[in-house]
Design a binder for these strands. Structure first.
Lengths: 203, 203
DNA sequence: ATGTTTCCATACGCAACGGTACAAAATGAA
DNA sequence: TTCATTTTGTACCGTTGCGTATGGAAACAT
C-alpha cells in the first residue's frame, strides 16, 4: 500500500476530507438541504467554518459533493448486487436489501434515500441537482433493464416479456422503498413489500 | 346556494382564505418547506404577514394546512379516476393521468407531487408530517387494492393474481411518476412509462 | 533557531428570517 | 354621528444564517 507520499509543507489538516464529507452528508440527509445550516455541518464534521469552505467551497458546493458521493455509493451497491450469477429473484432482492441497508443506516429514525429525501426538493430550482437526479435514475433504469434482458435471453424470463417495462417497475419499486422508508414504514414491512414486487416482476 | 350569512362585524377581509391557501401551497410546492420564506408566501398570496398569521397561524401551521389540502385534492382525484365501471387498464390510466395533471400543473418547470417534493424531506424531523404522509400512502394502497380485488373477483384478472402485490406496484408506479416528474422527465415520457406499468400489472 | 507555508480558531459584518406591536382603515351597531 | 369591532399595513425586534477577516498554531526548509 502506497502511503501517498506524505510531504505537505505547512500545518497538517486536522480532519480527513473524505470522512468529513460523509459526516456532512449525514447532516443533509437528516433534514434536507435548505434546513441544514453550516453550523449543523460544523457540528457534524468537527471542522470549523473557514476550514469547511477551504476544503469544499460554499454550502451548495458541499451538498453537490455529498450528492455525487451518495450516487457513487448507491450505484456501486446496485452494481455489486446485480453482478454475479444469481437467479433473477435473488439478484433483485440483493439490490433491494442493499438499498434498505442504506436507507436504514445511521442512528435515529430511517432517513430513506438521500436523493429522494434531499435532492428531489431542490431539483426544481437547481439545474445541477436536477441533472444529477435524472442521470442517476437513468443509470438505475439501464442497469435493471440490462439484467432483465439477460434474464430473458437466458430463458429465466418468458420470451414474451418486456425488459424495458419490467425495468421501470424494478426502479419504481426502489423508489417506493425510498419514499416509504423515510415516511416511517418498518424495514421488515419494506422487505416483504420488495419481495412481493419481485414476485410479480419475475412472473 | 346559501350565501353563508354575510354579516361579519369589522373590516372585511381582503382575501379569500381558501384561495390564499392554494397560493401558499404553490409557494411551498416550488421550493420546499424550509426554503420557502414567509415573504415568499406574502408575495404569493398578496396577504401581509399579520393577516397570514391571523388566518392560518405560523409557518408550520400554514404548511400543514397546505399538505392536508393537497392530500384532499390528490385522493379525490384518485377516487374519481377509479370510480365508475371502466376496464382495469382504463381505470389505472385514469389515475395516472389525473396524477400527471397535478404534477404538471402550474407555470414553470414541473413540480411533481407536493408530498414527494416537500413533505418527504420534513418527515424525518416532523412527526405530524410523517403521519400525514404515511396515512396518505396507506390510503392509496388501499384504494388500489380494492380496485384490483374487484378486478380479480370479476374475472378481469386471473384468479392466481395477488391484489395486494399488484396494488403495491400500482402505488410504486405513482411514486416513480411523482419523483421523475420533479426530476425533469417529460409528461409524454411519463405517460408511456405509466402505460407500460399498467400493461405489466394487468398481465 | 529562524523563516515560510499551510491550516486552525475566534470573532465579526451584514443580510434574511420569523414573529409581533401599533396605528390606520373599513365595516356594522347604536 | 359616534362607538365598537375586525382586519389591514408598516415598522420594528431579536435570532439565525452565510461568508470572511484576522491572528495564532503546527508543520517543513534552511
Amino acid at each position: 500500500m502506497n502511503e501517498t507520499a506524505k510531504k505537505p509543507r505547512g500545518r497538517p489538516r486536522a480532519y480527513e476530507p473524505q470522512v468529513a464529507l460523509r459526516q456532512a452528508t449525514g447532516a443533509f440527509w437528516k433534514s434536507g438541504y435548505a434546513a441544514t445550516s453550516l453550523d449543523d455541518i460544523t457540528a457534524a464534521t468537527g471542522m470549523n467554518r473557514p476550514s469547511l469552505r477551504a476544503a469544499f467551497g460554499d454550502k451548495r458546493a458541499i451538498y453537490l459533493q455529498a450528492l455525487a458521493g451518495y450516487w457513487e455509493l448507491q450505484l456501486v451497491a446496485t452494481r455489486k448486487a446485480l453482478d454475479g450469477d444469481h437467479a433473477l429473484e435473488t439478484a433483485l432482492m440483493r439490490v433491494y436489501d442493499a438499498a434498505l441497508a442504506i436507507y436504514f443506516s445511521g442512528d435515529g429514525p430511517a432517513r430513506g434515500c438521500f436523493v429522494v429525501g434531499t435532492a428531489i426538493t431542490e431539483a426544481v430550482d437547481d439545474p445541477e441537482v436536477r441533472r444529477s437526479v435524472m442521470d442517476g435514475f437513468r443509470t438505475l433504469d439501464t442497469r435493471f433493464e440490462a439484467r432483465l434482458r439477460r434474464a430473458r435471453d437466458s430463458g429465466e424470463l418468458g420470451s414474451d416479456t418486456d425488459p424495458t417495462a419490467l425495468a421501470l417497475l424494478a426502479t419504481a419499486t426502489l423508489h417506493t422503498l425510498a419514499l416509504r422508508a423515510r415516511a416511517g414504514t418498518s424495514r421488515k414491512d419494506l422487505r416483504t413489500l420488495a419481495s412481493k414486487a419481485v414476485g410479480v416482476i419475475c412472473g
